[in-house]
Every structure is written in structure tokens, then in C-alpha cells.
């Protein structure tokens, strides 16, 4: 069970990283995510199906990942254009793209609600074949591959955030006036940022599809909330001293969230309650810092009163 939760956690930590880019770096609550996550799954599965039947090369499924990332980035660019050029509130801009994506995702999946990779080699199955069929080994192999992907994404993003462009995007979420006064087009920064955010989200969807061997057109609902929950849990558990600290916290938060879900599942909670659980977890994670602050304040007050007596 623990290993399964680890795999899930790693897959969804990519989602958390994507949401982190829009929510925490750009300061935009981007609802495109519910659509672009599935776009990633759909693109990855459809490309994987192009491989010859009975083949064993990982090339095509591996290429499906950057393709999914690009498709997600396009979705992000759409939201960015609607928001910056048409001056639509970011929340609404995200909803518009997300709604459109529902149809587009179905189109990509040939109008079927679920599509499997049809026995074609996927990035995980190719590796399983290389090693052994032992289920525990499989899980370790899968977790190792996921770890490599997550580490790669986190490292690239960290380096990117330290480039000139990365700095400009971070500043756009912090003080847009200052960014424009520094001769930077803040609209472009938001568009690029949303492209990166949704690209990573779509990558998360693609990796999930590879892991479970199918894409589900309806599985996107609530993905934003899952991403935000991971970020907030991460910040509560692991801190948010700097962007880079927060980025790692988001990954840790996604892992903690999945482990928690696995535990609750073991205790017998039905899967249909997960979304409610996610919402409740967010509320609780928001409440913890507020509560601990007010307790600390009350303590300080009491201490002061005692000292005055």
C-alpha cells in the first residue's frame, strides 16, 4: 500500500508543481488545470497507441510526454490570452478554457470516455519487461522512474526561475506595476507562466495515464483543488521560506496527501468521498496556521498579563 501511495504521490506532485507555478508564482488561481490535466492524459494515450502492436520500444510513449506538455502549454496560453488580451478575470478565463477543453479532450480521445493504450508499450511497461514481473520490483521500478521525472522537472524549474525570464515571471506575480516600469511586458510573462504551469499539469496527467494504461475523460474534475491542497499541506508541514523551499514543499505536500488518502482508504472510506475529503483537508490546512498563530498570541498576552501582575 505504502508503495502505491508513493507512486500516486509522485505523479500528483507534478500536478502540485504545475498549480504552484500559477497559484504561488503568478498569484493566479488557474482553473484551466481541470481540463489540461486530462489533455495531457489524452494526448499521451493517443500517441502511445501509434506504436506498432507487439513492439517493445519506449521511444513513442516517451515522446508522448513532451507532446502532452506542449498540449498543456497551449491550453495555458489560451487562458493567458483570454485573461490579458480580452481583459477577462483570471478565474473566468480559466473556466472558459477548461470548459472548451472538455470537448477537445473528448475529440482527442475519439469521443470515447476512456481509452486504453491497447497493449502498446508504455513507459512503465517497457521498464517492467526489462526487469522482472515480481509485483514489488515493479513498484520499485515505477517509483524510481517517477522520482527521476519529478526530480528532472523540479530541477529544470528551479534553474528556470533563476534566469532573467524566470525572475521577470516571479516579479509579475509579486508587483506588476514594478515589472512594467522595468520595461517588461507583464502580459507576456503571465502567458508564459500559465503555459509552463499547464504544461507541467498536463505532464502529470500524461504520466498518470501511462501508469494506469488508460485515459479517463472525466477524471479532471477537482484537480485544481487537489493541487492546491498539496501546496497548502506542503507549506504547513515543510515551510515556505523561499520559492525554492515552497516548490519542494509542494512536492512533499503531494506525497503527504496521497499517504493520508491511502490511510483513510484502508480505514474503509469510499472513493466517492475523496473530493469532499480534499476540500476538508484544504480548510483544515488553512486553519492550522491561523489557529497556531492565535494560540501563540494568546499565550504571549497571558504571559504579559502575568508579568504585569
Amino acid at each position: 500500500m505504502a508503495l502505491g501511495a508513493l507512486e500516486q504521490g509522485l505523479i500528483y506532485s507534478l500536478l502540485a508543481v504545475g498549480v504552484f507555478v500559477s497559484l504561488r508564482i503568478l498569484d493566479i488561481p488557474d482553473l484551466t488545470v481541470d481540463g489540461s490535466f486530462i489533455t495531457g492524459s489524452a494526448v499521451s494515450v493517443m500517441i502511445t497507441q501509434l506504436a506498432p502492436e507487439g513492439g517493445a520500444s519506449a521511444l513513442i510513449p516517451a515522446l508522448s510526454l513532451p507532446a502532452a506538455l506542449a498540449a498543456g502549454a497551449l491550453a495555458g496560453i489560451c487562458t493567458g490570452l483570454i485573461h490579458t488580451k480580452l481583459k477577462v478575470q483570471p478565474l473566468l478565463a480559466g473556466i472558459i478554457t477548461m470548459t472548451g477543453l472538455f470537448s477537445i479532450n473528448l475529440l482527442v480521445l475519439n469521443e470515447k470516455p476512456t481509452v486504453s493504450i491497447n497493449g502498446r508499450p508504455g513507459i512503465f511497461s517497457v521498464l517492467y519487461d526489462l526487469f522482472s514481473v515480481n509485483p514489488t520490483t515493479r513498484k520499485i521500478v515505477a517509483a524510481a522512474l517517477l522520482l527521476v521525472i519529478v526530480a528532472l522537472v523540479a530541477a529544470l524549474l528551479t534553474v528556470f526561475l533563476k534566469t532573467q525570464l524566470g525572475l521577470a515571471i516571479r516579479a509579475t506575480g509579486d508587483n506588476e506595476d514594478m515589472v512594467r516600469a522595468s520595461s517588461i511586458d507583464s502580459d507576456n510573462m503571465k502567458i508564459i507562466g500559465l503555459a509552463i504551469a499547464n504544461g507541467i499539469v498536463a505532464l502529470s496527467g500524461a504520466v498518470l495515464a501511462q501508469h494506469q494504461n488508460f485515459a479517463d475523460a472525466k477524471a479532471g474534475t477537482g484537480m485544481v483543488v487537489v493541487g492546491i491542497a498539496s501546496i497548502i499541506i506542503g507549506e504547513t508541514l515543510f515551510g515556505k521560506r523561499s520559492v525554492f523551499n515552497s516548490l519542494l514543499s509542494a512536492i512533499g505536500g503531494a506525497l503527504a496527501y496521497r499517504i493520508f488518502i491511502a490511510v483513510v482508504l484502508q480505514l474503509g472510506l469510499k472513493a466517492s468521498y475523496f473530493k469532499l475529503l480534499s476540500a476538508v483537508i484544504i480548510i483544515i490546512s488553512i486553519l492550522i496556521p491561523i489557529a497556531s498563530k492565535s494560540i501563540a498570541e494568546r499565550r504571549a498576552k497571558e504571559a504579559k498579563n502575568n508579568a504585569d501582575d
Binding site: 528556470f160 533563476k162 534566469t163 532573467q164 521577470a168 520595461s183
Partner: peptide, 17 residues
């Protein structure tokens, strides 16, 4: 902050900030 201002008038690319 200074690095952002120091890039005034230039294109912000992928070189180190």
C-alpha cells in the same frame, strides 16, 4: 529586484538572472 531593473531595455531570456 536590482537584477530586474538592471535588465531595463533588454529582452529577458534564459541567461542567468
Amino acid at each position: 529586484n536590482l537584477a530586474l531593473a538592471y535588465g531595463r531595455g533588454t529582452r529577458r531570456g534564459l541567461s542567468i538572472g
